[in-house]
Design a protein around this nucleic acid. Structure first.
Lengths: 220, 220
DNA sequence: TGTACATCAGTGAACGCGCGTTCACTGATGTAC
DNA sequence: TGTACATCAGTGAACGCGCGTTCACTGATGTAC
C-alpha cells in the first residue's frame, strides 16, 4: 500500500508537476478515502521527500548503468553520464524540475536528500578521477587567469573529500563549472529557453559534452 | 491603480514565489474587494505575464547599465553582464525563479516575453561581437573535436540573426554553452545545490566568469 | 472445534482554509445642456 | 447656476472548486486459549 501511494504520487507528479500533487488526489485515485493515506505517510511534505529521494535514485541508477556500459575510457564515461542525465530529464521532465528546478515553496529538503543527490554528481566526477589516475590528455598549457587563494583551498578540500587528491585544483573548479553547464544545458532545453535558438538539441548537447571533455582534458 | 496591482503582485511574488501569488491576496492588500482587480487585469495568467515581462525588463536594464559602466573592453563588459545577472538573481530570487526556474504549471508564456528575454542574452552576446569586431585574443589553436554539419548551419543562422557574421561558428556554440553555464551557476547557487560544496560563491562565480572569458577568447 | 479478544486498515464527517471568476449592483464623479 | 444624464471604479454575494489534516469510529482479520 505504501508503495502504491508513492507510485500513484509519482504518476501525478509526472502529469502535473509538484504543485498539483495532492494527497487527496492520490487517495481518490487509489479508491480510498483521503484520511486513509495518513496511515502510511505523515504529511504531504514527507511524500514529497520520498519522491525526491526516489527520483535522485532512479536518475543516479540510470547514469551509473549507462556509465558502466561505456567501459573504462574516461571520455566515453563522461559522455555516457551526461547523455543519461539528459535522457532521463527529457523522459521525466517534472521529476527533473522537482530536483533541479525551482525549489518547492515552503518545502525544506531534509538531509536525506543529500546522499542520493551526490550519487548523480559522482558519475560526472568519475571521468576526471580516472583521467588523473591514468595518463592525461596531451597537455595543452592554457594561459589561464590567476586563481584566488580561497578558491584553491576550497578545491583542495573537495579533492580530499571526493577522492581526487592528484587532480589539479584548477581542474576541479573547471569540473564544478562543467557540472553547472550540464544542468544548465538540460534546464535551458527543458524549460524552453532554447526555442528558436537551437535547431537540433541532440547534436547541440553532444557538442557541448565534447567541448567540456576537451576543457577538462579528459583522457581519450 | 493598474500599477498598484502590479506592484503589489511583485511584492507578493518576491515574498512567496509565483505559486503563492493570488489575485485575491493582491486585492486584499490593496484594501479592495477581489472582483475589483478584474477591471484592470483580465486573469491571473495575464498578471503573471506582466510580471514576467517586467522582471526581464528590470534584469536586462541592470545588466545593460552595468555593462555601459564597464567601458569598451569586451572582457570587462562580459564580467559586468555576468555579475549583474547574478546580483539581480540574488536580490530577487523568486523573480529569477519565475524567469529561469521551473515553468509555472498550466501557464504558457506568450510571445510578449520573447523580446524582453532576448535583451538579457544580448548583454552576454555583446562581448563576443566586440571581440570579433576588434582585435582577438592571442590565438590559441585548440585541438577541438569535429563539429556536426547541422550545428554549423545552426551557428551560421544565429550569426546572421545576432549580428555576429564574422564570428567563428565554433565560438558561437561556445557562447551558447557559456550562457547555459552562467544561468546554471546562478541556479545552482540559488537553488541550494552548492551547499557544502562551494565555500565562497563570489569568488567561485568570478573564477568561472573568467574561465568562460578565456574559453571564448574574449579580447582583453 | 469454538469462543473471546486484540489488532489495525480503512471510513466518514468535519474543520477551516483559500482560490479564480462572474454578475448584477451602487454611488460618486464629471459632463452637457 | 442648476438640473439630467452617462460613465465607470469599486461592491457584495455567490458559484463551485480543491486542499491538508484530525478524530472518533467500524468491521474484518488473525491470534490465543
Amino acid at each position: 500500500m505504501h508503495a502504491d501511494i508513492v507510485d500513484e504520487a509519482r504518476r501525478q507528479l509526472a502529469t502535473g508537476g509538484a504543485a498539483s500533487l495532492s494527497l487527496r488526489a492520490v487517495a481518490r485515485e487509489l479508491g480510498v478515502v483521503s484520511s486513509a493515506v495518513y496511515r502510511y505517510v505523515a504529511s504531504r511534505d514527507e511524500l514529497l521527500t520520498l519522491l525526491i529521494v526516489e527520483a535522485y535514485g532512479r536518475l543516479a541508477a540510470d547514469a551509473e548503468q549507462a556509465q558502466a556500459a561505456a567501459g573504462d575510457d574516461p571520455r566515453a564515461r563522461w559522455r555516457a553520464a551526461c547523455g543519461a542525465i539528459r535522457r532521463w530529464a527529457r523522459a521525466h521532465p517534472h521529476e527533473y524540475a522537482l530536483l533541479y528546478g525551482t525549489p518547492v515553496p515552503g518545502y525544506a529538503a531534509p538531509a536525506d536528500t543529500i546522499g542520493p543527490a551526490s550519487r548523480v554528481y559522482e558519475t560526472l566526477i568519475d571521468p576526471v578521477r580516472r583521467t588523473a589516475a591514468g595518463r592525461r590528455a596531451p597537455g595543452r598549457t592554457r594561459a589561464v587567469h590567476q586563481m584566488a587563494p580561497a578558491l584553491t583551498a576550497n578545491a583542495v578540500r573537495l579533492a580530499v573529500e571526493l577522492d581526487l587528491e592528484h587532480v589539479d585544483p584548477r581542474r576541479i573548479l573547471d569540473l564544478l563549472g562543467a557540472v553547472a553547464e550540464v544542468f544548465g544545458l538540460v534546464s535551458f532545453e527543458l524549460f524552453g529557453h532554447t526555442n528558436n535558438v537551437v535547431d537540433d538539441h541532440d547534436a547541440w548537447f553532444a557538442d557541448r559534452v565534447e567541448a567540456m571533455a576537451d576543457a577538462l582534458q579528459l583522457a581519450r
